[in-house]
Amino acid sequence: MKNPYEVLGVSQNATDEEIKTAYRNLAKKYHPDNYNDSPLADLAEEKMKEINEAYDSICDMRRNGSSSNYSSGSYGTNSSYSSTSYPDVRQYIMNGRLDDALELLNGVPEGSRNAEWYFLMGMIYSRKGWGDQAYNYFLRAYQMDPGNPEFKAAFNSVNSRRAYANPGYNTNSGMGCSVCDICTGLMCANCLCNCCGGGF
C-alpha cells in the first residue's frame, strides 16, 4: 500500500487541518460525479477509494498515536440507481459495449422513450467522446424529469465542464479584474493625485 501521506500530497508533519483540506480538495477533484459519464470512471473510482483509505488510515494513526480530535468519515463513492427500465443497457454501458447499448436503445419505439432513455443515450455519447450529442440528451432527460437526482447530477456535471468550472482545479484564466483590483487601482490613483496636490 502507498504511503497515505504521499497519496494526499502532504508531509508527515502536516497539521490535522492541512490534511483535512488536502483530502477535501482531492475528494472534490476525483468525486465520482465528475467522471460518471467518462470512459475513465472506473479509474476515478479507484483513485477515490485510494484517497479515502489514505485519509482513514491517517485518521486512525493519529487517533491512536496522539489525541487528535478527528471526525473521520470519507466521501461515499457508490452511486446506485433505484429502479431502471433498461437494466441491459446499463450493463452494456458499464462493460464498455457502447454499440450494443446504442442498438438496444435505438430499438425502443419513439413513443415509449422516457427520460431515462435520453439519459442513457447521453451516457453512451459521453463515453464515446461525443460531448455535443451527450449534452443535448442529458438536457432532454433533465427537462423531462428535473426531480431525478441521477439526471440532475449528469446534467450539472456536463454543464460545469462546458463552463470549464472543474472542481478541485484552478481553471480561472486570470483575465479581467476583481473588486480588489479596482480598490487597489483607486487607492494608487488617490496616492498619485495626492502627490500632485489634488485627490478625491
Binding site: 476525483y30 467522471y35 475513465l40 460531448g131 465542464r161 472543474n166
Partner: peptide, 12 residues
C-alpha cells in the same frame, strides 16, 4: 467541454 475532459483525464 473538450478541454475539461482532457484536464479530468490528465488529473487521473
Amino acid at each position: 467541454h473538450a478541454l475539461s475532459e482532457a484536464l479530468l483525464s490528465y488529473g487521473l
